[in-house]
Amino acid sequence: MSAPATRRLRPAGGRSGTQPFGEGWRNTPTTLESVLTQSLLSPSRRWAALVALLASGAVLGVLLVRGEDPSAAVAARGNVGLCTNLKGDAARDCYAREVGRELVAAGGRAGTPQAIFAAPDESTTNVVTFASQDDTSAALLCELHIRVGATDESTPSWTSWVAQ
């Protein structure tokens, strides 16, 4: 005997009515049609869906009003996971960007002091000093040199780590 050429909807499973478990579906099959019908048409569920939808909208609205776009917040903090499958220049650029964002985010919250290279003016030439914030010039290089060169009593102690 061959199978019928077309098949009706298969039972969606689950338990309905008071039939013994494993037997009931034979008599009163729960079909996708019946479930959908119930889900969409039941007044109580429609109300529930509406309330949930409104609540989600409200949450999103509150976040937007507070300027906390979730994706933007993640991007601002940096995400090196974006770089893991990249190679070569693409990977280099990606790590530089994402690690840079992480450092900015971490430093911003920590409020760490910084070694900066101050632009020369008429009174001072090429003064390298510690300043608290707000200079966009690049830090003056390297491991050993910033550390050994830019330490004095006003310098935070972490710059005096003795073994690089």
């Binding site: 690690v99 430093g107 760490t112 070694a115 966009t136 830090a139 910033i146 972490w158 710059t159 780590w161």
Partner: peptide, 14 residues
């Protein structure tokens, strides 16, 4: 690259 660009200098120094 990121260490050089970071204003805090902490990573660069360490």
């Amino acid at each position: 690259k990121a260490a050089y660009a970071d204003q805090s200098g902490f990573l660069l120094a360490n």
